[in-house]
Design a protein around this nucleic acid. Structure first.
Length: 281
DNA sequence: ATGGTCGGCAACCGA
């Protein structure tokens, strides 16, 4: 008779980040993605609606009964939708503003996790057109936001060794995160000052850039293709604006990360595509 | 070639 030693139970956990550019306008595409990918946790940015207008019923029908919202009218807005219950959620303002750009959710025993897992869902300001903080207040705001990510212990790993920071960070920090490093040096999203601030904030926060860990440079990685390019696919002038940062202790639980590029080719798409990480937790 | 396209919301703003 063989007695099997009771094995530690492992399960797959899929987590997606996606800037949907209006959750109400794009709800059918979100449903299409959900049916195909079936993430356990879906983190959205640019939901563009107040919490009372969020299409909750549609998500509940799809199985996402556990929802944390931080919305506002017309602009910005972040949300976390989950198949499994979470323990708590919180949101914080940045730069002294009430903009809906952050929500964090803690998963634990209720979700079947032995150790608590914190997810920060962030939407960093795009920063306008001119990369000059003196002339362009939106760029100044973006730089201040990145500084606050660097300074703010709330969004650091320390004290929450199992945590994830994901979202639309609106910066493509590495040379091969854009289609042309040289041609984008003066373009907001890839200017040296933003790239430096984002990398500094990531390191200071104790985070690993998981996408680049799995796919090192010089391979190109993009998650966004401008609406202003009708031939986005053949031109392929993309940028990696969406990110998945992991606490170091989660790296050996990470199976893979998939960028759903096909979603950019759907009818009336978002300009960002979903990024999905699969874990063995 | 310094434009081009989106969604929200009803003028342009933010991206």
């Amino acid at each position: 008779m063989t007695f099997w030693k009771s094995k530690e139970r492992r399960m797959k956990l899929k987590i997606t980040t996606w800037n949907v550019n209006s959750v109400r306008f794009r709800i059918d595409l979100v449903a299409k993605f959900i049916k195909a990918a079936r993430p356990d946790i879906l983190c959205l940015q640019e939901t563009k609606c107040i919490d009372d207008a969020f299409p909750l019923k549609r998500f509940k029908r799809l199985g996402y009964e556990h929802v944390a919202l931080n919305g506002q009218k017309g602009y910005h807005g972040v949300a976390v939708l989950s198949l499994r219950p979470f323990e708590s959620f919180s949101k914080r303002g940045f730069c002294g503003l009430t903009d809906s750009r952050h929500i964090s959710v803690v998963f634990g025993e209720k979700a079947g996790l032995k150790d608590p897992l914190t997810i920060h869902n962030l939407y960093v300001p795009a920063g306008g057109d001119m990369p000059d903080p003196e002339a362009n207040p939106k760029f100044a705001h973006k730089l201040s936001f990145l500084d606050e990510m660097n300074d703010c212990a709330d969004v650091h790993v320390k004290g929450r060794e199992r945590s994830i920071l994901l979202g639309d960070l609106n910066v493509a920090p590495r040379e091969h995160d854009v289609w042309s490093h040289k041609q984008l040096l003066d373009v907001v999203s890839h200017t040296p000052i933003e790239c430096k601030k984002l990398e500094t904030a990531r390191q200071k926060g104790g985070w690993i850039d998981a996408m680049r860990e799995l796919v090192p440079e010089p391979e190109k990685l993009y998650t966004w293709w401008s609406y202003r390019s009708p031939d986005w696919k053949t031109a392929d002038k993309g940028r990696r604006l969406d990110h998945m940062w992991l606490a170091p202790s989660l790296m050996d639980r990470l199976d893979d990360i998939k960028i759903a590029k096909d979603a950019r080719g759907w009818t009336q798409p978002s300009d960002h595509v979903p990024v999905t990480a699969t874990f063995d937790v």
